[in-house]
């Protein structure tokens, strides 16, 4: 029972990448970076470094003035990126340059609803897909408003990605998993991004429940900072998303694109020790 939209996603980089992970019973890392933090030239070099380093997917955050699901580190990154003049158009140009230079890692664009809806979600989704992104993650579009996202993504051959949280009941997790493509984003902890997630038995039970209920592979994020966190996270999850820790680390490295790229490679390599 494959729907039209699934057919059009047959070549989607993210769908392929997570399918391979499942087929091989393997796990992966999905780093998160804020587009334009340090300038888009840095972002481009960091993307290449993460791609070469073997990231399984990159979550590319579009900065927003009012990021209500983000903690202080990602808020500050958004503010810096906007102050540096980062726009959707600029970000998509950078993404196109990344693909033209041979960049192959799947890219999930993370944005709050408003910047995507400003000129129509469907029109914007097409631009996002044409620039070379593979998925849309919208933290303030829950299942209730999801038809909008699903339609725009279907037209653009992008994966719509929904969320499951520890507060979600089984029904919602099933729905979110069934309506997501590529992966279901599982929020590891009740809270905003940043801070620490302790992978205690309660968290692991939740992740196991999410994995069992979701038709899509699962990526767990929020508060994963170290190789040890990665190791704990991928006990049940297909992908570990590492955001705040990486963004903080890159910011501390200054704004030289080469230095940032080297720092991103090293950070990723360290995290990957949690996969073996």
């Amino acid at each position: 029972m494959t729907s039209q939209s699934d057919n059009s996603l047959a070549d989607n980089r993210l769908v392929c990448a997570t399918r391979v992970l499942r087929d091989q019973c393997a796990r992966g890392i999905a780093p998160y970076i804020t587009a334009g933090d340090g300038g888009l030239a840095c972002t481009l070099e960091v993307l290449h470094a993460l791609d070469r380093g073997g990231a399984h997917c990159v979550e590319l955050g579009l900065p927003f003035s009012d990021p209500i699901a983000d903690g202080p580190v990602l808020q500050a990154a958004s503010t810096r990126a906007l102050a540096a003049g980062t726009s959707l158009t600029g970000t998509l140009e950078m993404l196109r340059a990344f693909r033209q230079a041979g960049g192959r890692v799947p890219i999930a664009l993370m944005s709050y609803a408003n910047p995507l809806m400003r000129h129509g979600l469907s029109e914007t989704a097409l631009r996002v897909a044409q620039a070379g992104a593979d998925a849309l993650i919208v933290p303030d579009i829950p299942l209730e408003e999801g038809a909008l996202l699903e339609q725009a993504c279907a037209e653009a051959a992008l994966c719509p990605i929904f969320f499951a949280a520890p507060t979600s009941n089984d029904d919602r997790i099933i729905q979110a998993g069934a309506r997501s493509r590529g992966f279901l984003y599982v929020v590891g902890r009740v809270g905003v991004t940043g801070g620490g997630t302790t992978f205690d038995s309660e968290t692991q039970t939740f992740l196991a429940r999410a994995r069992a209920l979701s038709a899509a592979p699962i990526a767990v994020g929020f508060g994963i900072a170290t190789a040890a966190d990665v190791r704990a996270a991928v006990e049940h999850a297909d992908l570990a998303i590492v955001g705040t820790a990486l963004v903080r680390h890159l910011h501390a490295c200054g704004s030289n694109p080469g230095e940032r790229a080297a720092a991103a490679s090293a950070f990723l390599a360290e995290l990957q020790t949690g996969l073996s």
Partner: peptide, 11 residues
């Protein structure tokens, strides 16, 4: 509408 993060939908 209800454009809120998933964590809040139960509340």
């Amino acid at each position: 509408g209800a454009f809120a993060p998933e964590t809040l939908m139960a509340s």
